[in-house]
């Protein structure tokens, strides 16, 4: 294909990852936002920094697995503390977020040759998306996406009411954990693209924009998927075109859609707010 022939391969890889991660994060985000887990997602993203630092400390060249594992550990810690202490969830998450960041920065600053990595992981770096990352992203996204689609009904019921979901035969405890697991894996794998600081925006902004326009959950899911896809694609293209950082470009593309959706809903649909 000659339109692709003069595009740098790293750009194509970033594009590929963005167009699978975008919709996947957006789909997850519909439930993340409805279940008020945006801050949770932010906390596990920041937890990844400690995982990255630990990975380097243990001599990993590519700290992807330590990163995912440490994020999972942070997620598990949040759930455990929530169940076994009287602390508020906000407090627990703020504690773990700042703790992981502080730990990560201290370790990275001790590793003299890895100081540059901090910037790359905080803000994302498409140059660091290797061919293996693309495969990992595509395979995982396909698997997780397929799983999510089979679980849409139970997840919707769980989001509406855990008690009713239980009585309708949903294994609520199991589904809660599975959802957290999937969210953690997807968020920590998206860090390559968007960076720790911005990754939550891909989970939060598309469903929020879709929420402005949708009349029901089905519409919100479809719109959110489309917006996530658009944000990922438009952001990487813009990043290439104007030579701007990729993560922020994706976020700005999503924000643009959000502002558009807000204007449409307020001026055109004249939809009364229920929230």
């Amino acid at each position: 294909m000659n339109i692709f022939s003069d595009i740098e391969p790293f750009m194509l890889r970033a594009f590929a990852v963005a167009v699978v991660m975008g919709p996947l994060c957006a789909l997850l985000g519909v439930f993340v936002t409805a279940r008020r887990m945006a801050f949770f997602s932010d906390t596990i993203a920041h937890g990844a920094l400690a995982g990255i630092a630990l990975g380097f400390l243990l001599g990993f060249e590519d700290p992807t697995w330590p990163m995912v594992l440490f994020s999972l550990l942070v997620a598990a810690a949040i759930l455990w503390l929530k169940e076994h202490t009287d602390l508020l969830t906000d407090t627990i998450m703020a504690l773990l977020l700042s703790g992981s960041v502080a730990f990560g920065i201290i370790v990275l600053s001790m590793l003299k040759n890895k100081r540059g990595e901090l910037h790359r992981y905080l803000f994302g770096d498409i140059l660091s998306v290797g061919p293996d990352d693309v495969w990992l992203a595509v395979v995982l996204c396909a698997a997780i996406g397929a799983w999510l689609f089979t679980k849409l009904s139970p997840l919707a019921l769980l989001t509406a009411s855990e008690d009713l979901a239980h009585v309708c035969g949903v294994r609520t405890r199991w589904l809660n954990y599975a959802f957290v697991l999937v969210l953690t894996v997807v968020v920590s794998l998206s860090i390559r693209l968007l960076g720790i600081i911005l990754v939550t925006s891909l989970v939060v902004i598309p469903p929020a924009a879709a929420r402005n326009l949708a009349r029901n959950l089905r519409q919100q899911i479809i719109l959110s998927l489309v917006i996530g896809l658009f944000g990922g694609a438009a952001g990487t293209v813009a990043s290439y075109h104007w030579d701007i950082p990729c993560g922020p470009a994706i976020v700005m593309a999503c924000i643009a859609v959000f502002i558009g959706s807000l204007l449409v809903s307020k001026l055109w649909l004249n939809r009364p707010t229920t929230a």
Binding site: T33, A34, S153, A160, S161, C168, R218, Q220, A275
Partner: peptide, 15 residues
């Protein structure tokens, strides 16, 4: 029910 969740009555019952 969380007011931010947009599930319609029809969808809720269909579940």
């Amino acid at each position: 029910l969380d007011r931010s969740f947009i599930l319609s009555v029809r969808e809720f019952l269909a579940l």
